[in-house]
Every structure is written in structure tokens, then in C-alpha cells.
Design a protein around this nucleic acid. Structure first.
Length: 318
DNA sequence: CCGCGGAGACGTCAATCAGC
DNA sequence: GCTGATTGACGTCTCCGCGG
């Protein structure tokens, strides 16, 4: 876990042990020139494939690499000697470690501050539109408006955009959440809307019938369960538990169900938040690597220019 | 083929931050 | 102060490469 063993300081290249093959840096420099008078621009090919313009160091007023203005020492308290200290002082429990590890600012904030100074570092947008393959309707499933529980213990959440989530509370998190998206295409049966089943593993689609009122019916048996959402005009089929409205909770059982429902909702949201956080973290690491690549090129150019100046200022006296 | 270890992804808990 | 968002820590699972 390199993340916890170093102080991250943006003012100098990070001395990380990029043992992972994925983090191997590949920087190619195209067309370096140190000509005078003309703005020397170097194209740096970053590992991600993007190219960054690195200007000549001497001709430009940009600050020195060594005294970079962005001295944002990210607070990651050094716990590199945790093993030894743990041996001597006993086990450091999580509380104590968390005291040691003061909280870092968010990746978005760090990156945005960093990118405001460095043109080569892309920004993390506030609420970015989906650009990395995630379907747009998946993002809309954060705030369900109705949650139902079937007799099998599965939770079905209906979001405002028509997104339906099915979660299996006891499934140890293995595909516990499945996103369903409304399609509203074609000619559905009277009073029904066909939604598309966007399960992660299955390639087939399943149909859900959604009239105005929201009653979820677990309809079929088989490899994959199907559900129906019907108007509650008829008697509920077997296996359907209607969620009570929050205002009408009286009995302890209902309170317990409400608590369970809230917990499931909280876990679902935190699950999504954790995914998003990891995505930002990866983006953050990528940007750090890009910055390292740029700084390495700048450093190399500085050394070359220093050598050139040395030769100019101190010619050989044979 | 099988076991093992590393890497990565994920879910959950808990602490902290930030906005109201 | 409350509440939602963020993120470190931890445990678990899956995949993949490697050696026996």
C-alpha cells in the first residue's frame, strides 16, 4: 500500500515504488528544442496517451521546478514504521491509526487546485457527465422514491427517473444491485410500460410492467427472477410486501422494517459513493503520474540547459 | 490440474468534512 | 447540531500468472 507510506508532496516527483505494472510510466518526448527567441515547446507523451505541451524552461516565466509554487503537502501522516512500533507498543488499533491519519482533502479538490496552476493536469469536473461508459441512467438511480421488499428479502427501489434497483440484502454483496432502465418503447400492454433489465451478468433482457401506481410483483421463477409493478386494484399476488409510508409506522415490526429499509438505502448509497470515490482516486493517481512525467521532462531539460550554460560560461582553456 | 500469491474491485463501517 | 458526502481501513471475492 504505497498510499499510506509516503507523504505526497506535489513540489517534487514522488518517490513511489510503482511495483504494479499498470503504473509503469512511459514518457516519450517529441521535438525538444532549446532554441533562443522561439518558444521552445516540447510534446510529452503521457502514459495515458495524451500529449502535454512543456514549454522551454529558460525562455518562459514559469517558475522553477525546484521551487514549484504548489507546495501542497498532502497530509498523510507517515506510518511507515507501523510494524516496528506495533511490535514495541502493542497493536495499534484502528482508532489510534485514524488519529494519526488526518483526513486528506478530497481528490476533486486537490486536483482542481493543482490543475488551476498546471495546464497539463486535467480537472475533475464537479458533476461530470458520463464519459466513461457508464450509462446516463445509471447515475440517476441515486435517490429512490419508493422501496419495496419481496417475500424473498430482495429490495426493489424505484427512482424518479424510472430506474429500478433490485438489491439482495443477504447476498454478501455479490451483484446485490441491479439497475433497470425504462425504455418506454414499442407497444406495451395496456396500462403497462416495458422496462429493460440491465443486469450486469446476464445478456438477456427481462420485462417489467409499470403502470401509474407502483406495485411490484415478483412474477416468475427460474434462473432470474422477474418482477411486475402493477396498479394495486387487484389482490396482491403471493410474495409481495408493500412498503408502508413513513408516516404510518406504528408497530415495532413496522419500525424495524423501516429501520431496515433505511439501512439498505444507506448501504446502497454508500456503495455507489465508494465506487465513485475509487474512480476519482484512480483519476487522481493518473493525474499525479502525468504531473510526474511532465516534471521529469522539465527536470531533464533543466539539466541539459544547465550543462549548456556551463559550457558557454566556462569555455575550455587549452 | 492444482494450489498459492498478488492485484484489483467491491461492500461495509466509521471518521471527518461541509453545507444548511 | 443535523445530515449527506467523502474517503481511509478492513475484509472478501475474483482473476490471473506461476511453479510444482
Amino acid at each position: 500500500m504505497w498510499w499510506h507510506q509516503h507523504n505526497l508532496c506535489f513540489s517534487h516527483p514522488i518517490e513511489e515504488d510503482y511495483s504494479s505494472g499498470d503504473l509503469e510510466k512511459k514518457v516519450s518526448v517529441a521535438g525538444s528544442s532549446t532554441g533562443r527567441g522561439s518558444p521552445a515547446v516540447t510534446l510529452v507523451q503521457l502514459p495515458s496517451g495524451q500529449t502535454v505541451h512543456v514549454q522551454g524552461v529558460i525562455q518562459t516565466p514559469q517558475p522553477s521546478v525546484i521551487q514549484s509554487p504548489q507546495i501542497q503537502t498532502v497530509q498523510v501522516a507517515t506510518i511507515a514504521e507501523t510494524d516496528e512500533s506495533a511490535d514495541s507498543e502493542g497493536v495499534i488499533d484502528s482508532h489510534k491509526r485514524r488519529e494519526i491519519l488526518s483526513r486528506r482533502p478530497s481528490y476533486r479538490k486537490i486536483l482542481n487546485e493543482l490543475s488551476s496552476d498546471v495546464p497539463g493536469v486535467p480537472k475533475i469536473e464537479e458533476e461530470k457527465s458520463e464519459e466513461e461508459g457508464s450509462p446516463p441512467n445509471i447515475a440517476a438511480m441515486a435517490v429512490p422514491t419508493g422501496i419495496y421488499q419481496t417475500s424473498t428479502g430482495q429490495y426493489i427501489a424505484i427512482a424518479q427517473g424510472g430506474t429500478i434497483q433490485i438489491s439482495n440484502p443477504g447476498s454478501d454483496g455479490v451483484q446485490g444491485l441491479q439497475a433497470l432502465t425504462m425504455t418506454n418503447s414499442g407497444a406495451p400492454p395496456p396500462g403497462a410500460t416495458i422496462v429493460q433489465y440491465a443486469a450486469q451478468s446476464a445478456d438477456g433482457t427481462q420485462q417489467f410492467f409499470v403502470p401509474g401506481s407502483q406495485v411490484v410483483v415478483q412474477a416468475a421463477t427460474g434462473d432470474m427472477p422477474t418482477y411486475q409493478i402493477r396498479a394495486p386494484t387487484t389482490a396482491l399476488p403471493q410474495g409481495v410486501v408493500m412498503a408502508a409510508s413513513p408516516g404510518s409506522l406504528h408497530s415495532p415490526q413496522q419500525l424495524a422494517e423501516e429501520a431496515t429499509r433505511k439501512r439498505e438505502l444507506r448501504l446502497m448509497k454508500n456503495r455507489e459513493a465508494a465506487k465513485e470515490c475509487r474512480r476519482r482516486k484512480k483519476e487522481y493517481v493518473k493525474c499525479l503520474e502525468s504531473r510526474v512525467a511532465v516534471l521529469e521532462v522539465q527536470n531533464k531539460k533543466l539539466i541539459e540547459e544547465l550543462e549548456t550554460l556551463k559550457d558557454i560560461c566556462s569555455p575550455k582553456t587549452d
